[in-house]
């Protein structure tokens, strides 16, 4: 299993690496390392329970990366925290990082590398992550990204009304993508 190198059509000069882990056992360690600002942890860590679909995840990453590529100001410190922030429907950064980032109870995580200075080298990323994250890497595809969704968490974090048809993943995906797009505007 290895990370997925992904390129947005508009930004071939800014590829991103996306990785997916399940059965993660060292979330607390990862979280502390992030808070300490340790350079090894220069990745976006997103709790996979929040991810509704591939579309959802990519919408958030795209929002962060396109803003950077178009020369717009980041709201957060760096591109990694920006990506996590972009998952959020609200403008409160601390809240966003807490809800959508890695927490002590996270068991599955999406890890994204979008650092422009880092030469996109999938193997390097994969190896680095294997040493950082204690868990099982899965291939990044639509099916796997939907496996860990916690519908209750999504409902709460995105304030989706209870009357919504949560069974239909496509419809839910459109709703959270809309929230991602409209955040802050």
């Amino acid at each position: 299993m290895s990370s997925l190198e992904y390129v947005f059509p508009q930004y071939p000069q800014a590829p991103v690496s996306i990785s997916l882990f399940e059965n993660v056992t060292n979330s607390s360690e990862l979280r502390e390392g992030l808070l300490a600002g340790n350079q090894c942890y220069n990745y976006a860590f997103i709790d996979a329970a929040n991810v509704v679909s591939q579309e959802h995840l990519l919408a958030a990453i795209y929002r962060a990366v396109s803003a950077r590529e178009e020369g717009e100001k980041m709201r957060t410190k760096n591109i990694s925290s920006e990506i996590v922030f972009c998952m959020s429907p609200s403008n409160n950064i601390m809240d966003a990082l807490k809800r959508f980032g890695i927490s002590d109870t996270t068991t599955s995580v999406v890890v994204v590398k979008a650092d422009p200075t880092h030469k996109a080298n999938t193997d390097l990323v994969t190896n680095e992550l294997h040493s950082l994250v204690r868990g099982d890497m899965l291939s990044v595809n639509g099916k796997n990204l939907q496996r860990f969704t916690d519908l209750n968490m999504v409902k709460k974090n995105y304030k989706v009304p209870g009357t919504f048809n949560f069974e239909d993943r496509d419809k839910l995906s459109s709703v959270v993508v809309g929230s991602v797009c409209l955040r802050g505007w």
């Binding site: 929002r63 459109s174 993508v177 797009c181």
Partner: peptide, 10 residues
Amino acid sequence: DIPAPRVIHV
């Protein structure tokens, strides 16, 4: 859930 286009990016 009213049929209409869905937002992809804005």
